[in-house]
Amino acid sequence: MSHLFNPLVTAEQLYQRRTHNDLPVELQDRIRFDTARLTHSAGILLRLPQDITAQANVLLFRYWTVDNLRDHEFNDASAATIYLTAKISASPRSLRSVANVYKYLLTADHDSSSTKSAPHSYESHARGYYFTEGEYQSLRGRLLTLEGQILNALGFNTHVALPHPLAITYLQTLDIFSPSIPKHAATEISQRTVQYLNTALMSPQMLYLTHQPPSLATAAIYLAAKEVGVTLPDVEWWEVFDCEREELGFLVMAMGSLDAIARGYQERDGAKGMITRMAIDNENRRSSLETDNTTPRV
Protein backbone atom coordinates (compact mmCIF):
# COMPACT_ATOMS: atom_id res chain seq x y z
CA MET A 1 0.00 0.00 0.00
CA SER A 2 1.77 3.07 -1.14
CA HIS A 3 0.27 5.42 1.36
CA LEU A 4 3.22 7.70 1.17
CA PHE A 5 3.46 8.09 -2.53
CA ASN A 6 1.45 9.69 -5.24
CA PRO A 7 0.86 8.87 -8.84
CA LEU A 8 2.74 11.47 -10.80
CA VAL A 9 1.90 13.22 -13.99
CA THR A 10 3.64 11.97 -17.09
CA ALA A 11 5.77 14.23 -19.19
CA GLU A 12 3.46 13.59 -22.07
CA GLN A 13 0.43 14.64 -20.06
CA LEU A 14 2.17 17.85 -19.08
CA TYR A 15 3.23 18.58 -22.61
CA GLN A 16 -0.19 17.85 -24.05
CA ARG A 17 -1.97 20.02 -21.60
CA ARG A 18 0.29 22.96 -21.92
CA THR A 19 0.73 23.09 -25.63
CA HIS A 20 -2.34 21.50 -27.18
CA ASN A 21 -4.53 24.04 -25.62
CA ASP A 22 -5.99 27.17 -27.06
CA LEU A 23 -5.25 29.11 -23.92
CA PRO A 24 -1.89 30.83 -23.66
CA VAL A 25 0.41 29.17 -21.16
CA GLU A 26 0.54 32.24 -18.92
CA LEU A 27 -3.21 32.29 -18.75
CA GLN A 28 -3.31 28.60 -17.85
CA ASP A 29 -0.87 29.26 -15.04
CA ARG A 30 -2.98 32.08 -13.81
CA ILE A 31 -6.10 29.96 -13.87
CA ARG A 32 -4.40 27.23 -11.90
CA PHE A 33 -3.09 29.64 -9.34
CA ASP A 34 -6.39 31.46 -8.92
CA THR A 35 -8.42 28.30 -8.70
CA ALA A 36 -6.11 26.77 -6.14
CA ARG A 37 -6.38 29.92 -4.08
CA LEU A 38 -10.13 29.82 -4.40
CA THR A 39 -10.17 26.21 -3.24
CA HIS A 40 -8.02 27.18 -0.32
CA SER A 41 -10.34 30.00 0.73
CA ALA A 42 -13.34 27.74 0.39
CA GLY A 43 -11.65 25.15 2.56
CA ILE A 44 -11.18 27.73 5.27
CA LEU A 45 -14.76 28.94 5.10
CA LEU A 46 -16.06 25.39 5.06
CA ARG A 47 -13.93 24.79 8.15
CA LEU A 48 -12.32 21.80 6.53
CA PRO A 49 -9.12 20.44 7.96
CA GLN A 50 -6.22 21.71 5.89
CA ASP A 51 -5.28 18.22 4.72
CA ILE A 52 -8.64 17.87 3.01
CA THR A 53 -8.28 21.20 1.27
CA ALA A 54 -4.75 20.30 0.24
CA GLN A 55 -5.92 17.00 -1.20
CA ALA A 56 -8.65 18.82 -3.10
CA ASN A 57 -6.04 21.08 -4.63
CA VAL A 58 -3.95 18.15 -5.73
CA LEU A 59 -6.93 16.27 -7.15
CA LEU A 60 -8.05 19.29 -9.13
CA PHE A 61 -4.64 19.70 -10.73
CA ARG A 62 -4.57 16.02 -11.51
CA TYR A 63 -7.96 16.28 -13.11
CA TRP A 64 -6.80 19.13 -15.27
CA THR A 65 -3.96 17.10 -16.64
CA VAL A 66 -6.45 14.57 -17.95
CA ASP A 67 -9.37 16.71 -19.03
CA ASN A 68 -9.13 20.08 -20.65
CA LEU A 69 -8.97 23.14 -18.48
CA ARG A 70 -11.75 24.68 -20.45
CA ASP A 71 -14.21 21.87 -20.23
CA HIS A 72 -15.87 23.39 -17.23
CA GLU A 73 -16.08 26.67 -15.41
CA PHE A 74 -13.02 26.88 -13.16
CA ASN A 75 -14.79 27.67 -9.95
CA ASP A 76 -17.20 24.81 -10.57
CA ALA A 77 -14.26 22.47 -10.91
CA SER A 78 -12.87 23.79 -7.66
CA ALA A 79 -16.19 23.36 -5.86
CA ALA A 80 -16.68 19.85 -7.22
CA THR A 81 -13.24 18.70 -6.12
CA ILE A 82 -13.60 20.09 -2.65
CA TYR A 83 -17.02 18.50 -2.33
CA LEU A 84 -15.67 15.18 -3.56
CA THR A 85 -12.61 15.26 -1.34
CA ALA A 86 -14.59 16.15 1.74
CA LYS A 87 -17.12 13.47 0.94
CA ILE A 88 -14.63 10.64 1.15
CA SER A 89 -12.91 12.13 4.15
CA ALA A 90 -14.02 12.09 7.74
CA SER A 91 -15.37 15.62 7.45
CA PRO A 92 -17.93 15.68 4.69
CA ARG A 93 -19.65 18.91 3.77
CA SER A 94 -23.04 19.28 2.20
CA LEU A 95 -23.46 20.43 -1.34
CA ARG A 96 -25.48 23.30 -0.06
CA SER A 97 -22.67 24.46 2.18
CA VAL A 98 -20.22 24.20 -0.65
CA ALA A 99 -22.55 26.12 -2.91
CA ASN A 100 -23.04 28.87 -0.36
CA VAL A 101 -19.37 29.27 0.28
CA TYR A 102 -18.54 29.55 -3.39
CA LYS A 103 -21.33 31.96 -3.97
CA TYR A 104 -19.95 34.11 -1.21
CA LEU A 105 -16.40 33.90 -2.46
CA LEU A 106 -17.35 34.70 -6.01
CA THR A 107 -19.50 37.65 -5.17
CA ALA A 108 -17.34 40.27 -6.69
CA ASP A 109 -17.10 43.01 -4.13
CA HIS A 110 -16.26 40.78 -1.25
CA ASP A 111 -12.66 40.13 -2.03
CA SER A 112 -11.37 43.55 -2.88
CA SER A 113 -9.84 45.07 0.17
CA SER A 114 -11.49 48.40 -0.47
CA THR A 115 -14.87 47.16 0.67
CA LYS A 116 -13.59 46.66 4.14
CA SER A 117 -13.38 50.35 4.73
CA ALA A 118 -16.40 51.31 2.67
CA PRO A 119 -19.59 51.09 4.66
CA HIS A 120 -21.79 48.55 3.00
CA SER A 121 -25.18 47.65 4.27
CA TYR A 122 -25.54 44.01 5.15
CA GLU A 123 -28.68 43.80 3.06
CA SER A 124 -26.98 44.66 -0.16
CA HIS A 125 -24.31 42.11 0.66
CA ALA A 126 -26.76 39.44 1.51
CA ARG A 127 -28.66 39.91 -1.70
CA GLY A 128 -25.50 39.23 -3.58
CA TYR A 129 -24.98 35.90 -1.88
CA TYR A 130 -28.54 34.76 -2.22
CA PHE A 131 -29.23 31.66 -4.25
CA THR A 132 -32.50 31.22 -6.00
CA GLU A 133 -33.69 27.65 -6.01
CA GLY A 134 -33.17 27.49 -9.74
CA GLU A 135 -29.63 28.73 -9.48
CA TYR A 136 -28.87 26.24 -6.80
CA GLN A 137 -30.35 23.35 -8.73
CA SER A 138 -28.40 24.17 -11.81
CA LEU A 139 -25.19 24.49 -9.81
CA ARG A 140 -25.89 21.18 -8.12
CA GLY A 141 -26.38 19.54 -11.47
CA ARG A 142 -23.12 20.96 -12.75
CA LEU A 143 -21.17 19.91 -9.68
CA LEU A 144 -22.47 16.35 -9.70
CA THR A 145 -21.71 16.01 -13.38
CA LEU A 146 -18.24 17.30 -12.70
CA GLU A 147 -17.81 14.90 -9.82
CA GLY A 148 -18.43 12.03 -12.19
CA GLN A 149 -16.04 13.53 -14.72
CA ILE A 150 -13.34 13.91 -12.12
CA LEU A 151 -13.72 10.38 -10.77
CA ASN A 152 -13.67 9.06 -14.27
CA ALA A 153 -10.64 11.07 -15.25
CA LEU A 154 -8.75 10.00 -12.15
CA GLY A 155 -9.75 6.38 -12.57
CA PHE A 156 -11.27 6.62 -9.09
CA ASN A 157 -7.81 7.06 -7.72
CA THR A 158 -8.60 9.54 -5.02
CA HIS A 159 -5.76 8.86 -2.65
CA VAL A 160 -3.40 11.77 -2.13
CA ALA A 161 -0.29 11.49 0.00
CA LEU A 162 0.69 14.80 1.57
CA PRO A 163 4.21 15.81 2.59
CA HIS A 164 3.17 17.65 5.75
CA PRO A 165 3.40 14.79 8.24
CA LEU A 166 6.62 13.66 6.61
CA ALA A 167 8.08 17.12 7.03
CA ILE A 168 7.48 17.00 10.77
CA THR A 169 9.18 13.63 10.98
CA TYR A 170 12.10 14.94 8.98
CA LEU A 171 12.43 17.97 11.24
CA GLN A 172 12.53 15.67 14.22
CA THR A 173 15.12 13.55 12.52
CA LEU A 174 17.19 16.66 11.94
CA ASP A 175 17.06 17.42 15.67
CA ILE A 176 15.31 20.72 15.11
CA PHE A 177 13.36 20.25 18.30
CA SER A 178 16.39 19.42 20.42
CA PRO A 179 17.36 21.78 23.26
CA SER A 180 20.38 22.99 21.32
CA ILE A 181 18.13 24.99 19.01
CA PRO A 182 16.18 27.88 20.52
CA LYS A 183 12.55 27.09 20.89
CA HIS A 184 11.31 30.06 18.88
CA ALA A 185 13.56 29.13 16.00
CA ALA A 186 12.29 25.59 16.03
CA THR A 187 8.72 26.81 16.04
CA GLU A 188 9.40 29.24 13.26
CA ILE A 189 11.16 26.74 11.10
CA SER A 190 8.33 24.23 11.37
CA GLN A 191 5.78 26.90 10.63
CA ARG A 192 7.70 28.13 7.63
CA THR A 193 8.02 24.57 6.40
CA VAL A 194 4.29 24.02 6.53
CA GLN A 195 3.71 27.40 4.93
CA TYR A 196 5.97 26.55 2.05
CA LEU A 197 4.22 23.25 1.59
CA ASN A 198 0.82 24.90 1.57
CA THR A 199 1.89 27.60 -0.80
CA ALA A 200 3.39 25.02 -3.13
CA LEU A 201 -0.12 23.62 -3.53
CA MET A 202 -0.94 26.69 -5.57
CA SER A 203 2.11 26.56 -7.73
CA PRO A 204 1.18 26.72 -11.40
CA GLN A 205 4.06 24.34 -11.90
CA MET A 206 1.92 21.73 -10.18
CA LEU A 207 4.72 20.60 -7.91
CA TYR A 208 2.52 18.08 -6.14
CA LEU A 209 2.01 16.36 -9.46
CA THR A 210 5.63 16.24 -10.45
CA HIS A 211 7.35 15.38 -7.19
CA GLN A 212 6.82 12.88 -4.45
CA PRO A 213 6.05 13.99 -0.89
CA PRO A 214 9.52 13.24 0.51
CA SER A 215 11.13 15.64 -1.95
CA LEU A 216 8.55 18.33 -1.31
CA ALA A 217 9.06 18.03 2.42
CA THR A 218 12.82 18.17 2.07
CA ALA A 219 12.76 21.27 -0.11
CA ALA A 220 10.38 23.08 2.22
CA ILE A 221 12.64 22.32 5.18
CA TYR A 222 15.68 23.51 3.25
CA LEU A 223 14.05 26.84 2.45
CA ALA A 224 12.64 27.31 5.92
CA ALA A 225 15.92 26.57 7.63
CA LYS A 226 17.72 28.96 5.37
CA GLU A 227 15.24 31.70 6.06
CA VAL A 228 15.20 31.24 9.81
CA GLY A 229 18.95 30.91 9.88
CA VAL A 230 19.20 27.52 11.42
CA THR A 231 22.17 25.59 10.19
CA LEU A 232 21.43 22.13 9.03
CA PRO A 233 24.03 19.38 8.81
CA ASP A 234 26.98 20.06 6.55
CA VAL A 235 26.61 16.81 4.72
CA GLU A 236 24.15 16.14 1.97
CA TRP A 237 21.40 15.38 4.45
CA TRP A 238 18.63 15.43 1.86
CA GLU A 239 19.82 12.15 0.46
CA VAL A 240 18.65 10.50 3.65
CA PHE A 241 15.18 11.61 2.72
CA ASP A 242 15.33 10.20 -0.79
CA CYS A 243 15.78 13.56 -2.42
CA GLU A 244 18.55 14.10 -4.88
CA ARG A 245 20.50 17.29 -5.11
CA GLU A 246 19.16 18.23 -8.50
CA GLU A 247 15.57 17.64 -7.50
CA LEU A 248 16.07 19.61 -4.32
CA GLY A 249 17.53 22.48 -6.32
CA PHE A 250 14.59 22.53 -8.67
CA LEU A 251 12.03 22.44 -5.90
CA VAL A 252 13.77 25.10 -3.88
CA MET A 253 13.74 27.37 -6.90
CA ALA A 254 10.12 26.60 -7.68
CA MET A 255 8.90 27.07 -4.12
CA GLY A 256 11.00 30.14 -3.62
CA SER A 257 9.78 31.86 -6.76
CA LEU A 258 6.13 31.38 -5.97
CA ASP A 259 6.07 34.45 -3.81
CA ALA A 260 7.16 36.64 -6.70
CA ILE A 261 4.65 35.04 -9.03
CA ALA A 262 1.83 35.68 -6.59
CA ARG A 263 2.92 39.27 -6.11
CA GLY A 264 3.05 39.73 -9.84
CA TYR A 265 -0.53 38.56 -10.20
CA GLN A 266 -1.58 40.76 -7.35
CA GLU A 267 -0.03 43.84 -8.87
CA ARG A 268 -1.30 43.26 -12.34
CA ASP A 269 -4.93 42.83 -11.49
CA GLY A 270 -5.29 42.30 -7.81
CA ALA A 271 -8.84 43.53 -7.45
CA LYS A 272 -10.25 41.75 -10.43
CA GLY A 273 -11.10 38.61 -8.58
CA MET A 274 -11.28 35.16 -9.98
CA ILE A 275 -10.81 34.54 -13.67
CA THR A 276 -13.79 32.82 -15.17
CA ARG A 277 -14.10 30.78 -18.29
CA MET A 278 -16.96 32.98 -19.32
CA ALA A 279 -14.80 36.07 -19.14
CA ILE A 280 -12.18 34.40 -21.29
CA ASP A 281 -14.77 33.38 -23.84
CA ASN A 282 -16.20 36.87 -23.93
CA GLU A 283 -12.77 38.35 -24.33
CA ASN A 284 -12.03 36.02 -27.19
CA ARG A 285 -15.27 36.83 -28.88
CA ARG A 286 -14.70 40.52 -28.52
CA SER A 287 -11.19 40.45 -29.85
CA SER A 288 -12.21 38.30 -32.76
CA LEU A 289 -14.93 40.79 -33.62
CA GLU A 290 -12.56 43.68 -33.37
CA THR A 291 -9.99 42.14 -35.59
CA ASP A 292 -12.75 40.78 -37.78
CA ASN A 293 -11.17 37.46 -37.44
CA THR A 294 -13.58 34.92 -38.79
CA THR A 295 -11.74 31.83 -37.70
CA PRO A 296 -13.29 30.55 -34.56
CA ARG A 297 -10.99 30.61 -31.63
CA VAL A 298 -12.64 27.97 -29.56
Partner: peptide, 21 residues
Protein backbone atom coordinates in the same frame (compact mmCIF):
# COMPACT_ATOMS: atom_id res chain seq x y z
CA UNK B 1 14.46 -2.10 1.92
CA UNK B 2 15.21 1.56 1.46
CA UNK B 3 12.12 3.70 1.18
CA UNK B 4 13.05 4.79 -2.27
CA UNK B 5 13.52 1.31 -3.51
CA UNK B 6 10.25 0.36 -1.88
CA UNK B 7 8.51 3.23 -3.55
CA UNK B 8 9.89 2.33 -6.94
CA UNK B 9 8.85 -1.22 -6.53
CA UNK B 10 5.39 -0.33 -5.44
CA UNK B 11 4.76 2.72 -7.49
CA UNK B 12 1.68 2.47 -9.49
CA UNK B 13 2.10 3.36 -13.10
CA UNK B 14 2.82 7.02 -13.23
CA UNK B 15 -0.05 7.53 -15.58
CA UNK B 16 -2.46 6.11 -13.09
CA UNK B 17 -4.64 9.08 -13.22
CA UNK B 18 -5.13 8.66 -16.86
CA UNK B 19 -8.75 7.82 -16.45
CA UNK B 20 -11.00 4.85 -16.38
CA UNK B 21 -11.04 2.37 -19.15
Amino acid sequence: MAPKEYAEKHARPSNSFSGCS
